[in-house]
């Protein structure tokens, strides 16, 4: 079984997409004879943040770098947990309330690895990959996502949970 995805073989390899993420279709393609556990995480747009009503989100990315970095993250997860499937897709452009902004799918022999690797992948995507969120509120105001939330864990806005790969 080709690890990265039988999804890829079906032309569904876009890690960054402008199209609405089809969770049902992705899950349908995520069954694998070597895997006893499949975990699908969907990060979705909620209708409120920081006490304000959210109208929609707008995502921007450097697609080339983001694609390469997501592939590296998936490869690292696959190697660490010996996954049968590791897949992620992040949407860009306007995303409405209840729609999926990002999906991560992992499959492994047992559930522990599928859960752990899924959390690892989404955390690294949120903290490292050049993707940015702008919140648009119903009162007409907007706010860029700004910092990742690493400082809540590290206590230092300059110190992140994961070290960035640099030259």
């Amino acid at each position: 079984m080709f690890w990265l995805f039988h999804l890829a073989a079906e032309g569904n390899m876009d890690f960054i997409t402008k199209k609405q993420i089809d969770l049902v279709a992705l899950l349908q393609k995520s069954h694998c004879p070597t895997a006893g556990a499949v975990v699908l995480f969907s990060g979705e747009v909620r209708n409120h943040n920081i006490g304000k009503a959210v109208k929609h989100l707008e995502y921007e990315a450097h697609a080339g770098m983001a694609t390469k970095m997501i592939a590296e993250i998936l490869l690292a997860a696959r190697n660490r947990w010996n996954l049968s499937i590791a897949y992620a897709q992040h949407r860009i452009g306007k995303v409405k309330v209840t729609e999926s902004a990002v999906v991560v799918i992992t499959a492994s022999v047992h559930r522990g690895e599928a859960y752990a690797s899924n959390r690892y992948i989404i955390d690294r995507i949120k903290h490292e990959v050049p993707i940015w969120k702008c919140e648009h509120f119903t009162d007409g105001s907007k706010e860029w996502g700004g910092n990742c939330n690493c400082h809540t864990e590290t206590g230092d806005p300059n110190k992140h949970l994961y070290e960035f790969k640099v030259l």
Partner: peptide
Amino acid sequence: AVQDEMVTDHYPLTGNEHVLVIPPSSGG
């Protein structure tokens, strides 16, 4: 980033680069 690769503060510049300035990520 220079030529789409992350670089450190010490990375030397010649003046001919394409430099990307990347704010903290906020995907997800």
